[in-house]
Design a protein around this nucleic acid. Structure first.
Length: 286
DNA sequence: ACCCGCACCTGTAAGC
DNA sequence: TGCTTACAGGTGCGGG
């Protein structure tokens, strides 16, 4: 489900309910979706304290598709949504309409008055929560392999990392060590916008194409964020308050295999690249 | 050191 | 109506 724009939409929608709130209670329904590390990086069974009991939330960070909720005492919860993960913020007394697959529940308060709850729901359980006692430990043990954030990627960064690689450009864009935040939807949409065929070997890209690609990635992601991300026809993705995104109405290639290109009316082609369904326009992306 | 292919889960939709 | 199959926004690992 969520790529960078959807994670960013979740992050922004969580600021109002979470910043300044204190965690009054933690209910752990499935501890196996949590990896809890100490300052040296070794793991132990999840405790309420790992999961922010008595923490006051001061910040929510994001790099790529990774989110980090940060406490006043530097404890960190790194949330990764996988394919179907969601954080759901509920006002006091409000119920969620999908009670299944809820793995964690936090009860929140301000000035000792209850203000609502936060749920982590993830049917497929590809997502999870990684906790650390400090922000430094998160960066050292979990975020050290992430490439630069896709929202601010530059042509130089892409070219330096990939110009000697023979992989298909699409496979490289999906690699979070190269660039953090692009997934299957935004890889295809960005390649279309850049006019680059997804199977092009990285080493064959010309300098001008690295520039188009960097501009296409940042432009596509910015537009998608402004529209609240992509909510596909199954309707599973929303922000933390239940609001759907709007960028699905602007997809030019993703989900449009066999249909006509919006620009040139050529039939869009599809084939798997890096084990992911890939769609492109053979005319606009030669 | 790289890159591919598959495994990990559940839900939904399409096909027979 | 069912049963079976394919596919879905993402990673992480083993093996070549």
């Amino acid at each position: 489900m969520p790529e960078l724009p959807e994670v960013e939409a979740q992050r922004r929608s969580l600021l109002a309910p979470l910043i300044g709130a204190t965690v009054a209670g933690v209910d752990i329904f499935r501890s196996d979706i949590c990896d809890c590390a100490n300052a040296q990086g070794s793991l132990h069974e999840a405790t309420p304290r790992d999961l922010f009991l008595a923490a006051t939330i001061t910040r929510i960070d994001r790099i790529g598709k990774q989110m980090a909720i940060i406490s006043h005492d530097d404890r960190v919860m790194n949330v990764h949504l996988g394919m179907t993960g969601m954080l759901i913020a509920l006002a006091e007394g409000q119920q969620h309409h999908q009670p299944d697959h809820i793995h964690l529940r936090w009860t929140l308060s301000r000035n000792n008055q209850p203000t609502g709850t936060l749920l982590f729901r993830d049917p497929r359980r590809f997502g999870g929560i990684w906790t650390f006692p400090t922000h430094a430990a998160l960066r050292q043990y979990r975020w050290h392999n992430l490439g630069p954030d896709a929202l601010t990627i530059t042509a130089d960064q892409l070219q330096t990392r990939l110009q000697n690689s023979d992989r298909a450009i699409k496979a490289a864009l999906l690699d979070q060590r190269i660039i953090a935040g692009v997934g299957n939807i935004y890889a295809d949409e960005s390649l279309f916008r850049a006019g680059v065929a997804p199977h092009t070997r990285c080493s064959r890209l010309k300098p001008a194409q690295w520039t188009s690609l960097a501009n296409a990635i940042t432009g596509t992601l910015s537009t998608a964020i402004a529209l609240g991300g992509s909510t596909l026809s199954d309707g599973t993705y929303t922000d933390s308050t239940g609001k759907a995104g709007g960028f699905q109405n602007h997809h030019k290639v993703y989900g449009r295999a066999g249909k006509l290109c919006a620009l040139c009316k050529t039939e869009l082609r599809t084939k798997p690249i890096a084990q992911r369904t890939t769609v492109w326009c053979p005319t606009c992306q030669p």
